[in-house]
């Protein structure tokens, strides 16, 4: 399996001169923060009475938890060198399971959420089984499993949107607030801190990183590569279903297809985040800042009243420009494959 292609984050380079190298490194580490601050400053100057309000910032922070959690879940298999394209399908299925059980079958919301999370774990387990036992590329397995899950979602929902999910979940996600920000923001931050801690301060996190950087080297070093990859896929399955729980709590309903649109933004945020904070690595803080940088820009454009296609220009343009600038800073290094 040496020829299997793996997701490669934006890798850093080291400048030859120590001072220049340090500056370049800091510029790269903080590049996304600087871009985010510049975006805030720009829109704040144009519409200070609307943009520079706590209501605006609490709205920005409190409405992207689904994407943040999904992106954080994606980081784990990406770091271990695998893709997980089934995540958005797990998110959608998870929210639909909650709606079907809670609304159609009057099952208490706590149990419905538990079942949804269990389905996420099971999906991760199945992904890992097919990838590792049959030695199939993760791209193919997760694409197939994701499509299969979408079929299940359409089946159990009868292709219908189901509303009326228990107010307890809605309250716990977007209605109840701390410092004016809906609780879902804090859940996403808790996930971010947990992943950051595991990646930065535990042997398990380091093993995931080693496996992602070189499977053969990791294997020769005594790391159970398959076990690490399997664990990463189970984690992404679980976090996808958690994102589905938040999605159900945000909308108070579940529909069989809209969650699928989160997949590409999650990949965009993961790769954009890998250019910053810890350049060259998929990292949770970089990914989280990337999500909020993009949503800040889109919110600013919305407040200015620009037509919505401009938001796509910003979203796509920001991603390409940020990655391109990152390459310029590091001297157009050829990325190893």
């Amino acid at each position: 399996m040496r020829s299997v292609s793996k997701p490669v984050p934006m890798r850093p380079t080291r400048a030859s001169e120590p001072l220049r190298g340090a500056l370049v490194e800091w510029a790269e580490r903080l590049g996304l923060f600087i871009a985010w601050a510049a975006t805030i400053a720009m829109f704040g100057l144009i519409t200070p009475e609307t943009f520079f309000t706590w209501a605006n910032f609490s709205t920005i922070l409190g409405s992207q938890a689904v994407l943040v959690v999904l992106t954080l879940g994606l980081l784990v298999p990406l770091t271990a060198g695998d893709y997980d394209l089934s995540m958005a399908s797990v998110l959608t299925l998870s929210s639909m399971i909650i709606a079907v059980l809670n609304v159609n079958h009057q099952i208490p919301i706590g149990i419905a959420v538990g079942v949804a999370l269990a389905v996420g774990l099971l999906t991760g387990f199945l992904n890992g089984f097919f990838i590792l036992y049959f030695r199939i590329h993760s791209l193919i397995v997760t694409l197939g499993i994701g499509t299969f899950l979408h079929g299940i979602t359409l089946w159990i929902s009868d292709s219908m949107t189901i509303s009326g999910i228990s107010a307890a979940l809605v309250n716990a996600v977007i209605v109840w607030r701390f410092l004016g920000v809906p609780l879902e923001f804090y859940y996403a931050m808790a996930v971010c801190i947990a992943i950051w801690y595991v990646f930065s301060y535990t042997a398990m996190g380091r093993r995931v990183l080693f496996v992602g950087r070189g499977r053969e080297v990791a294997r020769l070093s005594g790391i159970h590569v398959d076990r690490v990859r399997w664990g990463a896929l189970i984690t992404s399955g679980f976090l996808s279903s958690l994102a589905g729980v938040l999605y159900a709590g945000t909308t108070g309903a579940a529909d069989p297809s809209s969650g699928l649109t989160y997949l590409l933004p999650a990949f965009a945020a993961a790769f954009l985040g890998s250019t910053s904070i810890e350049p060259g690595r998929f990292n949770p803080w970089g990914a989280t800042v990337a999500v909020y940088f993009l949503v800040t820009g889109i919110t600013g454009l919305s407040i200015l009243g620009v037509r919505t296609f401009v938001q796509d220009l910003f979203y796509g343009g920001a991603l390409v420009v940020a990655v391109a600038l990152s390459q310029i800073v590091r001297g157009r290094e050829e990325r190893p494959q």
């Binding site: 919305s302 407040i303 037509r307």
Partner: peptide, 25 residues
């Protein structure tokens, strides 16, 4: 009145942030 366009495939990602921004603006 103000009109916001959200293509059908993008309802889940466009409508909520645009409505929030419009209500704040």
């Amino acid at each position: 009145y103000k009109v916001i366009n959200a293509p059908v495939p993008e309802w889940s990602t466009k409508i909520q942030p645009n409505v929030q921004s419009a209500l704040l603006a």
